[in-house]
Design a binder for these strands. Structure first.
Length: 397
RNA sequence: UCCUCAGUAGCUCAGUGGUAGAGCGGUCGACUGUUAAUCGAUUGGUCGCAGGUUCGAAUCCUGCCUGGGGAGCCA
């Protein structure tokens, strides 16, 4: 009988005289349901995560993936409990969207066309009027705009589901298919948004520490010796909050040499964000009030005209884990911002309707679920915190 | 997409121009209060792929493929 066999053992559970275990079973009967062939790839030793990714159908049996999947599950439970306690409505945003106005990244097309013979119009372009939806359709990159719709009816809502990015990103922090949590709150400003984000992360970390203590101890010992200290740091300390402008001043004054020079107006680089979260404050940092030019059109313009009410939560070791904002609720300002961004206003007719009919101050944020699990467990590669990772050139299993 | 490192046995790796190696695993046997057991034997390779240089290439050169790390984009 080899490692990997499936068995049922009947016997007597007794106190063990051996070291390192309290109990053992003295077997009286063993039934083998499935023996494992001698080429069973999982051995009783450490395997590299790269190798395990090539056998994604067997790796859930390993102790590390097992711990990851339990913690991932606990994170999902914590998210639902957090919002249920606060009476947020879980709304199901669509996976397929015909709206091409989300602008959050490259999208996967959804079509039933036979790729070898796509109908074309007079100009030789694909004639989508003959396609399944009668127009171009895509996999969603974000449920935010649908969440905004629902928030104008139910006040507090959240989405939690898969999202897709067709970007050719090959990093340990990106997936083509990943899950996102997006709360959206009416009658809420940026302060309320930040408060919720901070409470939210603290809640999830407390929940996992309470429900998965053995798995967290495992990660702390085998994967990342900071895992438990980091969780306690999150739970027990106030997040640092400062404006983008203050952060830039701080970066300009510090002794550290950066590959990319810092000046007001630039989008902060990974090295800048890491420096702030890992070296200056050594805890999560919330940056707010970013320059208008580097943020999305729907974020609420401040009175200074130069910044928007946006916020990013930067986590040590991970970087941006949450991105959010107060949304622009003023119809005239939003229309102007859409035009300034060079976007077709007619595509946003329903989004603008939300401002036309009973507009309301509102705010929300998005959290990358796999990044949260990475942050929680200390796992280095995002492909190892989702059972079946989808990345460029990889959709096996 | 860019930069960089790597690809040798099922796994983890050593081998820098001269007959392809180790540990683990597998198989067989022995032994055993074991814990990723121990002891003995044994099995196992188109050295990522294709070309080139050379008397001779795992080793040097070129191209490609795949993977890791970093960057960009972002969550």
């Amino acid at each position: 009988m080899n490692t990997g066999a499936s068995v049922a053992v009947e016997g007597k559970l007794v106190e063990s005289p051996a070291k390192g275990q309290r109990i053992e079973m003295q077997a009286s009967e063993i039934e083998v349901f499935g023996s494992a062939a001698e080429d069973y790839p999982l051995q009783k030793k450490r395997h590299s995560f790269e190798f395990l990714r090539t056998i994604a159908h067997l790796r859930p049996r390993t102790n590390t993936l097992g711990a990851v999947m339990r913690v991932r599950n606990a994170c999902a439970q914590a998210i639902h409990e957090f919002f249920r306690e606060r009476e947020f409505l879980w709304v199901h945003s669509p996976i397929i969207t015909a709206s091409d106005c989300e602008g959050a990244g490259e999208m996967f097309g959804v079509s039933t066309f036979d790729p070898t013979k796509i109908p074309t119009d007079k100009e030789g372009k694909p004639d989508y009027s003959q396609d399944f939806f009668g127009r171009p359709a895509y996999l969603t990159v974000s449920g935010q705009m649908e969440a905004e719709i629902m928030a104008t009816a139910f006040s507090n809502v959240y989405t939690f589901g898969p999202t897709f990015r067709a970007e050719n990103s090959n990093t340990s922090r990106h997936l083509a298919e990943f899950w996102m949590v997006e709360p959206e709150m009416s009658f809420c400003d940026l302060e309320g948004d930040m408060n919720l984000a901070e409470e939210f992360l603290k809640y999830i970390f407390s929940y996992v520490m309470k429900h998965c203590p053995e798995d967290m101890a495992f990660f702390n010992e085998r994967i990342d010796k900071e895992a438990i200290a980091r969780a306690e740091n999150i739970i027990n300390n106030e997040f640092e909050r400062l404006t983008y402008t203050k952060a830039v001043e701080l970066l300009e004054k510090c002794d550290r040499k950066f590959d990319y020079p810092v000046e007001w107006g630039i989008d902060l680089q990974s090295e800048h964000e890491r420096y702030l979260a890992e070296e200056v404050f050594k805890k999560p940092v919330i940056l707010t009030d970013y320059p208008t030019e580097i943020k999305a059109f729907y974020m609420r313009l401040s009175d200074d005209g130069k910044t928007v009410r946006a916020m990013d939560v930067l986590a040590p070791g991970i970087g941006e884990i949450i991105g959010g904002s107060q949304r622009e609720e003023r119809l005239d300002v939003l229309e102007r911002r859409i035009v300034e961004a060079g976007l077709p206003k007619e595509d946003y007719w329903w989004y603008l309707d939300l401002r036309r009919y009973g507009t309301v101050p509102h705010a929300g944020f998005g959290l990358g679920f796999e990044r949260l699990v990475q942050f929680m467990t200390g796992m280095g590669n995002i492909r190892d915190v989702i059972p079946f990772p989808r990345t460029p050139m990889n959709a096996d299993f």
